[in-house]
Computed example of a mutant assay.
Amino acid sequence: MSIEFKPTIKSINIASEDLTKITLEVKNGSLDGQYEDLRKLSGKTVVVAMLPDHYSYTQKFDRSTNKPVQEWIVNPDGTAEMKETEQTQLDVDGKGNIDIREIEKKVDKDLIDEYIMKSNSIEFPGIINPRDVISRLDQGDDLGEVADAYEMSDAALLAEIEKARKYFAPFADAWNKVRDEVVFQDADETDSEVDDDSDSKESDSEDPKQEMNNLSEEIQNVSEDEIDANEETPGVDVEAEGDLLGQSDPYGNEPPENEDSESDDQTDDADPEDDPYK
């Protein structure tokens, strides 16, 4: 069982090295519905993790233009970036330093968590997935169980969450100013579009190869048909097929006239007396 609420530290009394009294005051209703659970913990030893209710980041401004040198931007499609503008001031102290003023800005913890859960355009360069951790804790998972899943201690997990919130704080602040104009793209839809593009590119790249393969098969089939036709068509051998002389060959060509005349002359010159059948 765990209880999360937002108290104000009213006082800290260090009575001795072994005894420290901390008075917490709750005025914001964050304990509503949890009083029964709180009573069950009375007199027991508990683990208390005190986290700040807001986080700070520093933004630098060029005094000569009163414009930010660093700027965090969240675009309408949910993508985010940090830009650094060129400094227009001349050398102030002869050592390349210019007149810069720093402004500390505070961002509410709940706002940062909301941004972390909605944004998927930038990743936290740490060893945890802050979206997963915050989601599981919001669903009532025990801090120790979540820490075990990441194979780290409770304190180490809390330290990583702190780092993540500080990292996302300026982006959350920038998003809060234009949140009505921003539409975050769902991670599943993004992955689906990437897969569709990949499939399309793969299909396009395969089409020319397929066409070449089909063309090669057609050429091969045509060549085989020609070879079969040449093998099946009988040739005309003048000496072996003497009975075809004087007739039209299989291709419809008439025999030469000189051959016909020679054949007729030979028939006419034959002596009838030499005919053994007469």
Rank of each mutant, 00 (worst) to 15 (best):
G144F: 10
A149R: 06
T58S: 08
V48L: 15
D62R: 10
A164P: 00
V194K: 14
L245K: 10
Q70M: 12
E181H: 11
K118N: 05
Q266G: 11
K83N: 07
M1C: 08
L143V: 13
I161S: 01
D268H: 12
M82Q: 14
Q89H: 09
D53N: 10
E145K: 14
K106E: 11
I9A: 06
D199L: 12
D62H: 04
L41K: 13
E81N: 11
V69Q: 05
N230C: 05
R63K: 15
D93E: 09
D62K: 07
P276T: 09
K6C: 05
S42M: 09
E4A: 14
L51C: 07
D113E: 10
S30I: 08
T65F: 02
F61R: 05
K21G: 02
P276V: 11
V222I: 15
Q34E: 08
D99K: 08
P255V: 07
A164S: 14
Y35T: 11
D108C: 03
L31P: 00
E218Q: 13
A147S: 09
Y277E: 14
Q185P: 00
A164R: 01
S200M: 13
E71W: 03
A187S: 08
M152P: 00
P125G: 01
R63Y: 04
R165T: 02
D53I: 08
N66G: 10
D265M: 10
E189Q: 14
T88V: 10
N28F: 04
I103P: 00
S203Q: 03
P170N: 06
N258Y: 08
E151V: 14
E202G: 07
P7Y: 06
S203N: 04
T85K: 15
Q70N: 15
A49K: 09
V92M: 14
G96T: 08
K95L: 13
A156Y: 03
V182C: 03
G246P: 00
N230Q: 08
H54Y: 11
T8C: 05
D173H: 06
A156W: 02
D148H: 07
D91T: 07
M212L: 14
A80T: 05
D265G: 05
F184E: 03
D207C: 04
Q185A: 10
D207M: 14
D154P: 00
D93Y: 11
N258M: 09
S205A: 15
E239W: 12
D110V: 09
G242T: 07
P234D: 02
A49T: 12
A174Q: 01
D142S: 11
Y277K: 12
M117F: 04
D53Q: 10
S216E: 10
Q70Y: 09
V183T: 14
S135A: 10
S30V: 07
N28T: 09
S30Q: 07
P250D: 05
D18P: 00
E4M: 08
A187Y: 02
D260H: 10
V107N: 01
E232M: 03
N214P: 00
Q220K: 15
E71M: 06
L157W: 00
Y251A: 11
V133G: 00
E162I: 02
E231L: 11
L137G: 00
